[in-house]
């Protein structure tokens, strides 16, 4: 499971940094390294691009996992360079931004957009796997999630927009319910296709969601 990100456009990043001339860049050694959006290579390339644009890069680091508590140590180790910067440019996912926010009062500007929590099906192909809905249905849908794999998130079977097993919205994408049907058939559990699924509960926990583990 990984946090899947896409780099913002150079224009958007420039816009985000307007009025902030001294920049400290933070990448992440885990998810954004894997998606080539904020690993060491991308951080160095970003540094060079910002310098060409006339920015002063006071330093950079790639935190092994920017969403966990190693971030605090990385912030301390880079204290002087961060202190002399106007802001941090984050090339970790949004979770890294949230983590850094705990330790740094300066503006943290994201250079990437966090798209979804996904897995890598084949090299370079990332697919959203879980919407963290809090009411897991995978046991009744043959391990294929209709919330993430169906564009409409339909839990009571497909809409009318299937063509040759593909989704009418994206002809490259399999219809989630066709996949579910085929797997349920293999498992001899097609009776589940007729089960009424009540409306989803969007109040499993209050938004923003939180959980205290005792």
């Amino acid at each position: 499971m990984k946090s899947i990100t896409r780099q913002k456009s150079p224009e958007d990043i420039q816009q985000g940094l307007s009025g902030l001339d001294r920049v400290f860049i933070v990448g992440c050694g885990t998810c954004t390294t894997m998606t080539h959006t904020g690993g060491i290579d991308e951080v160095v390339a970003m540094k060079e691009r910002l310098q060409e644009q006339g920015k002063r890069v006071t330093g950079f680091t790639v935190i092994p996992t920017a969403c966990d508590d190693m971030t605090e140590l990385a912030m301390k180790e880079n204290g002087p360079a961060i202190s002399s910067a106007d802001c941090i440019l984050s090339m970790s996912c949004a979770l890294g931004v949230h983590r850094m926010n705990l330790y740094i009062g300066k503006p943290i500007i994201p250079a990437v957009d966090t798209l979804f929590i996904g897995i890598e099906d084949s090299p370079g192909y990332f697919r959203e796997a879980c919407a963290q809905c809090g009411q897991c249905l995978l046991g009744e849908t043959a391990g294929i999630c209709p919330i993430t794999a169906c564009h409409k998130g339909l839990v009571n079977g497909p809409c009318g927009g299937t063509n040759n097993g593909r989704c009418e919205v994206d002809k490259e994408k399999d219809c989630a319910w066709t996949l579910i049907y085929n797997r349920l058939k293999e498992q001899d559990r097609l009776d589940l296709m007729r089960k009424y699924q009540p409306p989803r509960n969007h109040h499993v926990t209050l938004a923003p969601r939180s959980l205290r583990i005792q």
């Binding site: 497909p158 066709t178 049907y181």
Partner: peptide, 15 residues
Amino acid sequence: DTEASMELQIAKLER
């Protein structure tokens, strides 16, 4: 156009 699609339509109609 496929068997799965046909069966899914019928199952959904039943629902």
